[in-house]
Amino acid sequence: MRLKTRAKQFFLQVVLMVIGAFVILPIWGVLRLAFDGSLFGRATSFRLLPQTWSISSFLRVLDSPYQSVVFSQLLLNSILVSGAAAFLAIIFGMMLAYAMARFRFPGKKLGMTVVLLTAILPPIAFVIPLYVLMNALHLRTSLLALVLVYAVFGLPFCIWNLRAGFMTVSIEIEEASFLDGASPWTTFMKISLPLASPSIFVAGMISFLLAYSEFAIGWLFVEKASNVTLAMAVYAMVQSGNAQPWSMLGSFIILISIPAVVLFLLFQALIVKRMMFGYLD
């Protein structure tokens, strides 16, 4: 009997290792490039480990990864743009979501369907009109345009998610608050908002990361090198073709993923729960 469970455990671990290898493979590939100090252009021979260990490429990335712009400027742009976009998406999304979760009014069902539809459209579907609109407002090449565009990408998801979040707050608590004489605004601020804060946090985080990691569409709204975000700088490096400094690209990719990975690993259970559109409640 014991032998059997041992054999089973062994088999189980082997299967898990195979899946683990699959997961690790591309990450390893990038790590190997990032830590190789001997690489100047592309990798020329097959290696599992770097030829000479070095962190010089990380230092170079932290110095100036894109043209003459310093890393801190790119990081600042990224945080500013993503943070502002997430903030806008949350504020406006929250209001619509609360109305949709709490009240009955004509056209609600249609509204929900439209929101769901916009939530599942690819971001590219909003770019053309925004491109024209931003041009017309003479905002196209400003950071504000990027903020608005990314906020639009995040908004439908925020509405749909926050609605599910507000629906988990039981209506009895709100009614009790009304009976005690609180105004709708107070009730919202003191009762519903705190109770729904996990969903708000997740929706904000997803919107933030959406903007943080977007790299192709952003280029349409940027002209000055000083307005580029981190993700866009990565894409610029990729676009430079075979001349690209591969180990710099590798270390850049690692640096840019660290915040996202940390956030996701810390809040994984919460995120899954919220991403499921309220199915787990």
Partner: peptide
């Protein structure tokens, strides 16, 4: 409860404004 449109309006206006301007109009424009 039946129609709570009145209660919902203050919540709807700012959100709808933003949503319409930057999401719905773009779709129609498209």
């Amino acid at each position: 409860e039946k129609n709570e449109f009145r209660k919902a309006v203050p919540w709807l206006i700012p959100g709808l404004f933003f949503f319409t301007l930057l999401t719905l109009i773009p779709l129609i424009y498209q």
